[in-house]
Design a protein around this nucleic acid. Structure first.
Length: 452
RNA sequence: GCCCCGUUCGUCUAGCGGCCUAGGACGCCACCCUCUCAAGGUGGUAGCACGGGUUCAAAUCCCGUACGGGGUACCA
């Protein structure tokens, strides 16, 4: 089903970062537009003059692009329609649908006058004894009594429109047919609808998305939670994983297939199937998605994505990184990480001059390992003149262990890498070289001697 | 307080009156594989908030209750 007449929009305010909840809203709008062949519009709700600095806005564009969410029209800025907004307010004032208002000692006082006055706010006069009903694309019929609504400000005393006014006017002017947004905006809907009625416009179909919540089941907040998309990007989540995961918060395909290309998600997406209950943003599951996407990367792409992280690592200089080595063991590293930022720790021992043995590994892998000293002695001796090939190295370590009747791989691994776990050892050892390897084995042997 | 919205395994979800002794995924547990850690494979764990209706039949429809959330700004 395609309908080119459908127009939806994402309308963030310029906060200086893209919130994951906003990203999810943007994504659902985008998925909806793409799935029906409609138009996706980007509009910046910068009615509050203090906040429309370019640097606060560009990051939002950046993050949207990173996620692969592209827009067909815009970005438009609400502040560019100031004259139009002022005109609407002026009209409402002139025909008595709104009035001048001032806040005096916690009280709103009505000021006489039917024209805009500098320094005074304008309030919309909410009609009495009426019901505002609408059919939400996600929630079904919703209704409000206007008697429960207070007169609200549509024009600030500083000469700017409020979100309520600008939102109504702009959606009308831009021909928005569907407004998909967070549930936190549900109770503003009757106010906006009333304003649209005043200007003779047909309101869009609203679809209020369930909120994203934290473990306390509270709306994700900037203070307590990791909400910035940019931070997830820095930590090395793949955008494809992020988008795939976000799409599944509040919605699910009917065929139980969760990890799938965006093109299929678009195809499966159905606004009417969006859930109503709040969804917990589960990092563990995001990690799983990200790990899967990283695992499926081809080696070249993986290297390309990971090089910046390796180069930025302060433990070595960028020139130290051997791209060929990174690529050779890419597959082994890929199946061990959920985020790109974790990657350097799997390669580090290959690029470091010497390794520091982690305390835990020292204890468990060397001190407490049976006859670790003899294993090291044996391997040091055997490594001195054996062929420096993967299979030979493997066999050699094994043989030393067999002779002693103990497991020999772990002590060697700990001595060379400094850690208990890691990628398969012997291939990388070939690249590390005989000298460095034996050197590390000797160093570990010394440690053992001095600490026992 | 008032208004609005919501409630299926711990979590994300499938389910839109019979196919449900409720399916999948993450997590967790066990086993297999294995030079380690993983990955992978196999199996397991766990849920329709509660109470009334309606119906031959309800997780699915209606009404209450409880609990949770959102809003109630010259923020959006």
């Amino acid at each position: 089903m395609t309908n080119p007449d459908i127009r939806c929009r994402f309308a963030p305010s310029p906060t200086g970062y893209l919130h994951v909840g906003s990203a999810r809203t943007a994504l659902f709008n985008w998925l909806f537009a793409r799935s029906v062949g409609g138009t996706f519009v980007l509009r910046i709700e910068d009615t509050d003059g203090d906040r429309n600095r370019p640097e606060l806005i560009d990051v939002i564009f950046d993050e949207l692009r990173w996620l692969g969410i592209d827009w067909d029209e815009g970005p438009f800025f609400q502040s560019d329609s100031r004259d139009r907004h002022r005109q609407v307010v002026t009209d409402l004032l002139a025909n008595g649908r709104a009035y001048l208002s001032e806040r005096v000692n916690e009280e709103n006082v009505v000021i006489e006058g039917s024209e805009l006055v500098d320094g005074l706010a304008v309030r919309y006069r909410v009609p009495k004894d009426r019901q505002v009903v609408f059919t939400d694309a996600v929630r079904g019929d919703v209704s409000f009594e206007t008697n429960d609504l207070e007169d609200f400000v549509i024009w600030r005393s500083n000469g700017t429109p409020t979100f309520l006014l600008a939102n109504a006017v702009d959606d009308a002017d831009m021909g928005i047919t569907h407004a998909i947004r967070g549930e936190d905006l549900l109770s503003t809907t009757p106010k906006v609808q009333l304003l649209m009625e005043e200007i003779g416009a047909t309101p869009p179909i609203y679809g209020h998305l369930p909120l994203l919540v934290n473990e306390q089941r509270k709306k994700l907040s900037k203070r307590r939670d990791d909400v910035s998309i940019a931070d997830y990007r820095t930590r090395g989540y793949l955008p494809e994983a992020m988008v795939n995961y976000l799409a599944l918060l509040g919605w699910g395909p009917d065929d139980d297939i969760e990890i799938r290309p965006i093109i299929e998600i678009i195809d499966k997406f159905d606004l009417g199937r969006v859930n109503k209950a709040a969804a917990f943003f589960d990092l563990k599951k995001l990690d799983h998605f990200s790990a899967t996407y990283i695992q499926n990367l081809d080696a070249d792409k993986f290297v390309e994505l990971v090089l910046p992280y390796l180069h930025a690592d302060e433990r070595w200089s960028a020139e130290t990184i051997d791209v060929a080595v990174v690529k050779e063991f890419a597959g082994d590293v890929q199946q061990r990480v959920a985020r790109l930022s974790e990657v350097p720790d799997w390669y580090d021992w290959l690029f470091l001059d010497s390794v520091e043995i982690e305390e835990k590994a020292m204890n468990k892998g060397l001190r407490k390992a049976k006859q670790a000293d003899e294993v090291l002695d044996g391997v040091i001796e055997a490594f001195a003149d054996c062929a420096w090939e993967e299979d030979v190295l493997n066999q050699t370590v094994r043989a030393v262990g067999d002779t002693l009747g103990v497991k020999s791989a772990v002590p060697v691994r700990v001595a060379v890498t400094g850690k208990m776990g890691g990628i398969p050892l012997y291939g990388p050892l070939v690249r590390l070289g005989r000298d460095k390897t034996i050197d590390r084995l000797r160093t570990a042997r010394e440690h053992l001697r001095s600490s026992s």
